[in-house]
Each structure stands twice: as C-alpha cells, then as structure tokens.
Write a protein that binds this DNA or RNA. Structure first.
Length: 414
DNA sequence: TCTGGGGTCCTAGGACCC
DNA sequence: TCTGGGGTCCTAGGACCC
C-alpha cells in the first residue's frame, strides 16, 4: 500500500455556488453558462472580480482585476454581488461529503481540501476520485477538479490542469512531461514579486527552475529560493495537517473606506467598528491577544502599520481600542486614508490565563459585559447594540467579515 | 471614477540581557 | 579602556496564498 494525496478544488467556487443557489430559487439562467462574475461594488471602491464563469474567462477577464476593466472587455458582463453566507454553506456541504471518505482531511481554503488515502495502485485512486467528483456534482450541483499524487504540492498542481470537472494525476515520473513545460508563474509560491526576478535569471518554465543552480537561488531569494526549487522538483512532504492540530495565529478585520478620510475622528470611528468585530471574534475563539496592530493604506495604495505589545493579554474591547487609538495617533502620517485595518496577534488561550498585578481592576466586570453584548449580537444580529458614538452616523457600528462559521485558513503554507 | 479582505511566514535591524 | 558573541524579544515591512 502506498499513500496518495487528493487535492479537491471547486471550479469557479463562488460563481458556481451562486449559480446553484439561484437555480434552486427558480432562476432560469445558469450563471455558469453566460459571461458573469462575482464582484464587489465600485461605488464603495470594492469593485474587483472575486470569481468568473468560463464564458467570462473567454473574454480574458481575470480574478482580482477591476470591474471597470472587465466591463471594457465584455460590456454585457453579468455582475453579481457576493453572498458569503451561501458560499460558506456550500463549502461546508462539500467538506461534509469529503469527510466521509477519509478522516485525514485538511481544509485548505473555502473551496479547497486535501485528503490522503492508502492504495495499492494508481487505478484505484483514480476510481475513488471519480466517485467523489460525481457524487459532489450529483448531490450539490457543482463540479470539482481533483488532483492526485504522492504529495500535496503535486496534487495541487495537478488539480489546476484542465478545468472544469476533471481528474488529473501528477506522479513523480510525470513531472518532466506534465509540469516542467509550464510557465514558472503557475507554481505554488511563485508570485508577483518573484516572477520578474526569475525571468532576469533566465528562468521561464518550471523545468528551468527545477534545473537552476540551487546555491544561486538561495543566494538571491534566501529560503524562498530553496522552497520553490524543491517545489519545481516535486519535493514536498508536509502531510495532512488536520484542523484540530492547527491553531489560529491572529485575527484581523479591515475595510476600504467609501471615501478617503483626512480627519482623525472619522478614522477612529471606523477603527472602533473594526475593533468591535475583531474582539468579538477573539472572544468567540476563546483567545486573548498580546499584540495589537493598526494598518493604514494611503490613497496611492502605499501602506504602513504600527503595533504594540500589551502589558498583559486581553480580549476586552475597550482595552484593545485604547491601544488602537494610541497606535493610530502615533502612526498616522496625516495623509488621506483609503483603507484601515485592526489586527490582533500573539494569541494565548484564555482558559488557563494567569492574572497579573497589572490587570485592569474591573476585569471580571468587563468580561461579563463583553460576553453579554456578544450573546445579544449572536442572538439578535450584530446591530442590536451599538455605541452611542455611532448614533446618527453613516459608519456601521461593527465592521468585518464572517463571525460564526469560521474555520482555519492557511493559504501560503501547505 | 481605478486595486478586497482574510490569513501565514520570513527577514532584518534594534534593544536588551548574560 | 574601548568593543565579543549568543540569545530572545519587539517592530516594520514584504512575500505569498485563496
């Protein structure tokens, strides 16, 4: 018996899930059959493409580009706003099916999972992949690609071959034929900044990278050079990281402001709304944070951040917001602000927390207050309670994504 | 009117301690 | 009198992923 890794990847995930949902609601048109995208709202400056249909792809529309640009390429493009709750449900449904086939499952992102199996031969692995793929299509109404290999990296590369609704293998003896001719850009961990550096070294394909001088790559790209050289040679051995074995490292929320801001009192209001969501998620995860970070993006998209280590770990909204205020005042260059972020890191579990003499005197009362507010918000919606600061203001009193249904995402780490 | 929002890890420099 | 070396923590910024 040998170990086989599967990488399951939902095709055009957000768009497929939206299409399935709409068909269930009685809509006649399948978004997957027309040029369509899931995208934000340009009026609030969130106008980028999150997912595209295959007909949209044929217009050369790309994920991450602006809706403005996409509309120039395809004027009758159908644009749909994202509906994250639906996507979370679709993702969970897929995960529940996959779990039935192996307890060794690693949820890699909202639309990707790794599984491992033992088989005595390749044919058996392909048969099972086919069964899984067909079952998801039949029961959930969307298609997936499945990549199969002897490690996660190769399985992931394989699932990215021809789409949609396909199974591909990329075993070590197939690397030279199937992977080396591909442009180096498609290799996991070769991103925007690395591509031009590799091109300058005369490296254009994954094969070029695989056969490049390792010492020189290490010299120019440090540990990252070694990593991508190994990936180009199919070397990777991390194995399945189960959801239980990994713990969350940080929690953050950020938002692009509908308009640039140049008054600190306006910025502070957004920062408070972001802090409300971050601390609520922090408490929900039963963590305390030791470090608080503010990040600011200018109109020209340049950005900077400022952080501080707290005297003692906390999950309290007021204490964390005080730190945020201090950080903002210290950091802000007084230039117009496009985007603001709040993040907490250096998390510790809150159940075995040792009280220190520096702790806030009313800590217990604060805890009770925080948890009461959290409960009300979970029960009646997040707008049930708001700070008086937000009364009659346009700023939403609590800003940020996904509270309850979260799961770990570890995207640049296999 | 034209670049989102959620993450993780790595690196480099400075502070500080022994 | 005159500059060692190792270790850890903190901070800022950059790179990557989906």
């Amino acid at each position: 018996m040998k170990k086989f890794y599967f990488h399951i990847d939902a095709n055009s995930a957000y768009l497929s899930w939206e299409a399935v949902y709409r068909l269930q609601q009685g809509e006649q048109i399948d978004l997957r059959d027309i040029p369509s995208v899931i995208g934000g709202n340009p009026k609030t400056r969130k106008g980028i493409i999150l997912a595209k249909s295959i007909p949209a792809k044929n217009y050369n529309i790309q994920t991450g580009e602006t809706l403005y640009k996409a509309l120039q390429k395809c004027p009758n493009l159908k644009i749909v706003s994202p509906n994250y709750h639906i996507y979370m449900k679709a993702s969970n449904a897929m995960h529940n099916i996959l779990k039935e086939y192996s307890p060794n499952i690693q949820r890699f992102s909202i639309d990707e999972s790794f599984l491992d199996f033992n088989f005595s031969n390749r044919t058996d692995s392909i048969k099972l992949a086919f069964k899984i793929k067909e079952r998801i299509k039949r029961e959930l109404g969307f298609t997936v690609n499945i990549g199969i290999s002897s490690n996660k990296l190769l399985a992931k590369v394989a699932s990215d071959f021809k789409k949609p609704d396909n199974i591909h293998t990329l075993f070590p003896d197939e690397i030279e034929e199937k992977m080396w001719p591909l442009p180096v850009d498609v290799l996991f961990m070769v991103g925007r900044a690395t591509i031009p550096k590799l091109h300058r070294m005369g490296i254009y394909t994954i094969g070029d990278l695989a056969n490049a001088n390792l010492d020189y790559l290490k010299y120019t790209l440090k540990s990252h050079g070694k990593l991508i050289w190994e990936y180009a040679n199919g070397i990777e051995s991390s194995g399945i990281r189960s959801d239980k074995s990994t713990s969350i490292k940080g929690i953050g929320n950020s938002t692009t402001l509908p308009r640039d801001i140049d008054q600190s009192k306006d910025a502070l209001m957004y920062l408070l709304a972001l802090t409300e969501m971050v601390t609520m998620r922090l408490r929900h995860n039963k963590k305390l944070c030791k470090v608080v970070v503010v990040s600011i993006k200018n109109t020209d998209l340049s950005h900077y951040s400022h952080q501080m280590t707290l005297i003692s770990p906390t999950d309290d909204t007021n204490i964390i917001y005080d730190a945020i205020k201090t950080l903002f005042h210290q950091a802000w260059h007084s230039q117009a602000i496009r985007h603001l972020g709040v993040r907490v890191t250096s998390l510790v579990d809150n159940d075995n927390y040792q009280y220190s003499i520096f702790d806030h005197r009313n800590l217990e009362n604060l805890r009770k207050l925080n948890s009461t507010i959290d409960d009300l918000r979970l029960k009646y919606g997040k707008d049930i309670i708001l700070r008086s600061t937000f009364l009659h203001k346009k700023v939403k009193p609590i800003i940020g994504g996904v509270g309850e249904d979260e799961y770990k995402m570890m995207s640049s780490l296999l």
